[in-house]
Design a protein around this nucleic acid. Structure first.
Length: 710
DNA sequence: TTTAGGG
DNA sequence: CCCTAAA
């Protein structure tokens, strides 16, 4: 789906402030969604003439308009908004983009789908020189500011969803209203235009959107041809006096229109579209005619495909069509009655129309396009309660992704690290060698200090390093953790290479690696087996000769030191073999290095909790455990949990398992008491007494052998 | 990143 | 202690 991002600037004129300073406020910038150009939207609200309207913009207020009185302010609903491509001249005039430009932009966007550029521009004020204090209280300005903010907020990130939903609702409203009006014979098609400009000369941004409140008799959102620039300018400049518009603009809005406007006098004539039309069969000429009939203007575009799409979009979105007895489907204009799946006359259809159009704009191939549209419409009725999918338009739709999964968990740091580890492996060696500057021969593989990558006969790659510790050439796992900090960004792109989906790939790799970040103390001599199929996707072609076991001793040492420095090691998952073939869950997770809690630590913990409260573990860690580096906040939390359990266990740690020497002291009752008190203070009820009883009896408490001990 | 919980 | 979801 193409997101258009642009900035919509509201041109409005400040009023009041004493000396009718005529200050023109060029306000704001919105970011808008490209697809919106096919959506009617009562943008008038956004302009916030009433000053309070911006509240409706807030995503929290999404339902306000729709759920409120049936017709809160007919005016608002009655003014659909369409988006237009325009170019902004230096003097602020808006010149509608030509069809070619539109096409260009479309192509541009199409080739560029993955990139979502959302830009926010600084709001600027123009001609606001003579300002007294009162102007700052200008309700309009203030309102606009608030508006801007809320709007930006909405646009930002996930809140787009809310906004889309909102628009969705509004769309329905608008459609209904429109239908109503048409039913009453009112030919009013006043619209406000959202003007989008992406040819902006602005350096820091390519896409600017200008929101304009304009009146027009054209309900269709199409680009006004610029083949007659002068004429268009005329249109623009005359916009302030669009007399026939049944809804005069009020207040600042009116003045706005003096700045610029787009207004077309022609009106689509659907009478020419009677009967069934199949765009696919039309010639360019006929398409042009249809285009004109649809949009009420001529076009110079020769591109058949484009014309079809345009027309399809226009027709699909046209109120006239949707409200008439025709519906547009599958590149054909057909009688509504003949289309059972589209018989619904309420918002459903309108919405789906939009979907179709949006979708259309994303498809190039006529085939897929057609079928897509068909699909969309066929399922129309059923998709009502799932607005989240409405704008789905392909795999690269960010919104879809965001919405599909409630909360897509970001890869954990560790996960990413381990992932990146694989790829970093080979050049870690390079780094070493270059640092050491071995024999000034960078190219000779011999001089490289690298982990040896053996490929065993069973198809597994074994990454090892030679260890001099054990005497002679013992192979111990080699692991380097080059990047301890932020994983590089393209890890994700790396993921894409994996055929079996990123999630799975990640899992596989992770499992396969079996590499863990650990302290140096717990050394194990296993081998890290890398399931080849999982890892080779990430491995760049190795420059090392496969059978290069002979590494210089100094190199070994160097490497080892490096590794040691990194505080990394791997624990041997010797037999966690070929994940690809046997993805056994294999829960047997050896526990890492367990560091017994000392009494002092526990006391610190308790103190910390009493000071900062349970739950603020990062605080506690920072302040009370600053010296103990190996206790993480999670550790603290876990320990506290255990303490809690212990303190509420009836059976104080005494009986049983004295066989061993008291490897650890029981936790002093005083501390337990304190813990209990703190728990009470913080309304911390021991998770469940029953379970803690059980825990104290047999099972472990929270991963601790004995809950009552240190 | 941090917190909360399950394991 | 590990792992993860959620925030």
């Amino acid at each position: 789906m193409k997101l258009l991002h642009g900035i919509i600037q509201h041109l409005t004129r400040g009023r009041g402030c004493g000396a009718e300073s005529n200050q023109q406020l060029l306000i704001q910038s919105y970011v808008c969604v490209f697809e919106l150009h096919v959506v009617d939207f009562p943008w008038k609200q956004l302009v916030g003439v009433e000053g309070n309207d911006e509240a409706k913009l807030d995503e929290s207020g999404v339902d306000k308009t729709s759920s409120a009185s049936p017709s809160p302010s007919p005016r608002q609903i009655a003014d659909p908004v369409v988006y237009k491509l325009v170019r902004v001249q230096g003097d602020g005039r808006l010149v509608p983009a030509t069809d070619e430009e539109v096409m260009e932009v479309e192509d541009l966007l199409e080739g560029d789908k993955s990139e979502i550029r959302i830009v926010a521009d600084d709001r600027q004020t123009v001609g606001c020189t003579s300002n007294d204090g009162s102007s700052s209280k200008n309700p309009l300005l203030d309102g606009s500011e608030g508006l801007l903010q809320s709007e930006n907020a909405v646009v930002d990130g996930e809140k787009l969803n809310a906004r889309l939903e909102y628009i969705e609702e509004m769309l329905q409203k608008v459609k209904q209203e429109e239908r109503l009006r048409l039913a009453c014979g009112s030919p009013d098609h006043s619209s406000a235009y959202m003007i989008v400009d992406w040819q902006c000369s602005d350096q820091h941004d390519k896409l600017h959107a200008f929101d304009k409140k304009l009146q027009s008799k054209i309900p269709l959102q199409e680009t006004v041809p610029s083949s007659t620039p002068g004429l268009i300018d005329g249109h623009i400049n005359q916009s302030g006096s669009v007399g026939e518009c049944s809804k005069p603009l009020d207040g600042p809005v009116e003045s706005v229109s003096s700045a610029s406007a787009v207004c077309t006098s022609s009106k689509p004539d659907f009478s020419k579209l009677k009967g069934e039309i199949c765009l696919d069969n039309l010639s360019i000429r006929e398409l042009h005619e249809t285009f004109k009939a649809t949009f009420g203007r001529d076009t110079t575009v020769k591109d058949k495909q484009w014309l079809k799409r345009r027309i399809a979009m226009g027709l699909t979105n046209s109120c006239d069509v949707s409200t008439s007895s025709f519906i547009f489907r599958n590149n054909k204009l057909v009688k509504k009655g003949e289309e059972e799946s589209c018989k619904s006359v309420d918002g459903t259809f309108a919405k789906d129309s939009v979907v179709g159009a949006v979708n259309d704009s994303c498809r190039d191939s006529p085939v897929s396009h057609n079928s897509e549209m068909e699909d969309r419409q066929i399922v129309s009725g059923k998709r009502l309660e799932n607005p989240s999918m409405e704008y789905d338009c392909g795999s690269d739709d960010l919104l879809t992704e965001q919405r599909a999964a409630k909360r897509v968990r970001k890869p954990t740091r560790r996960y990413i690290e381990e992932l990146s580890e694989v790829e970093s492996r080979e050049y870690s060696g390079r780094l070493l060698s270059s640092a050491k500057n071995y024999g000034q021969d960078q190219t000779s593989p011999k001089s490289r200090v690298m982990p040896v990558r053996n490929v065993s006969s069973d198809g597994r790659a074994v990454v090892t390093r030679l260890d001099s510790l054990g005497g002679s050439g013992v192979q111990v796992p080699y692991v380097s953790r080059v990047r301890r900090s932020r994983p590089r960004k393209n890890v994700m792109s790396l993921m894409r290479f994996h055929p079996s989906g990123t999630g799975m790939a990640a899992k596989l790799v992770k499992k396969a690696l079996g590499v863990r970040n650990s302290q140096r103390d717990n050394e194990s001599g296993g081998e890290v087996l890398i399931a080849r199929s999982a890892s080779q996707h990430f491995q760049q072609p190795l420059t090392t000769a496969p059978g290069k076991d002979a590494l210089s001793g100094t190199g070994m040492v160097e490497l080892e030191q490096k590794v040691e420095l990194k505080h990394t090691d791997s624990s041997g998952d010797t037999s966690d073999d070929n994940i690809v073939t046997v993805p056994t869950a294999k829960g047997g997770m050896r526990r890492k290095h367990h560091r017994a809690w000392t009494l002092g630590e526990v006391m610190k913990l308790v103190d910390g909790v009493s000071m900062y409260g349970a739950g603020r573990w990062s605080e506690i860690k920072r302040l009370a455990f600053a010296s103990i580096s190996y206790r993480t906040s999670v550790d603290l939390k876990d320990k506290w949990r255990n303490l809690l359990r212990a303190s509420f266990a009836q059976t104080p740690p005494e009986k049983g398992m004295n066989s061993r020497k008291h490897a650890s002291m029981p936790i002093p009752a005083s501390i337990l008491l304190r813990v209990r008190e703190l728990a009470k203070m913080h309304a911390q009820v021991p998770p469940n007494l029953s379970s803690s009883k059980l825990a104290s009896c047999g099972g472990r408490s929270v991963y601790e052998t004995r809950s009552g001990y240190l």
